[in-house]
């Protein structure tokens, strides 16, 4: 398990390759990368605030839950904070398992939980001003799938 919370950028392709290279027994690797999406009337900065200490603990707990629910051999979570620009990578998850179903389901679970249970808050800076991104009801509802 590899959990990283950082303000610096990361190379999603390179991370995926080294994660895959570390797996000796996996038959499947699934990865997801979250990217800063532009919004009307043009996003200058996506500010991501987090709760140092709790963030790492919460992500570790979510990843441990994924490892225990599915037959994963490994998982990786990288999540950035700070000021990001449109097109920059915000976060990635990767999961490895013997067969693809476990890796897909665990990656989906990780994303649903990171969205609503990892203490990050996003603020959009545009020409119109700044706005905290509101949590969506469907994101909370998505947790009930698990």
């Amino acid at each position: 398990m590899d959990i990283r919370v950082q303000d610096s950028d990361f190379d999603a392709g390179g991370e995926l390759n080294s994660f895959t290279a570390r797996q000796t027994n996996a038959g499947a690797v699934v990865s997801f990368t979250g990217i800063v999406r532009d919004v009307e009337p043009g996003l200058s900065v996506m500010e991501i605030e987090h709760y140092p200490g709790m963030t790492e603990a919460a992500i570790t707990k979510i990843a441990e839950e994924a490892m225990s629910r599915w037959a994963l051999s490994d998982c990786l979570v990288i999540h950035r904070f700070g000021n990001l620009k449109p097109g920059e990578d915000i976060m990635m998850v990767a999961t490895a398992s013997a067969h693809r179903a476990d890796a897909f389901a665990a990656a989906d679970f990780l994303m649903d939980y990171l969205k609503s249970r990892a203490p990050f808050w996003k603020k959009e800076h545009t020409a119109d001003g700044t706005d905290w991104v509101a949590a969506k009801d469907e994101d909370e509802a998505a947790l009930k799938r698990w």
């Binding site: 990171l114 249970r117 990892a118 203490p119 949590a135």
Partner: peptide
């Protein structure tokens, strides 16, 4: 004790 709005990670 920490107070905050619903989280928006991912």
């Amino acid at each position: 004790i920490a107070f905050f709005p619903p989280m928006t990670g991912g």
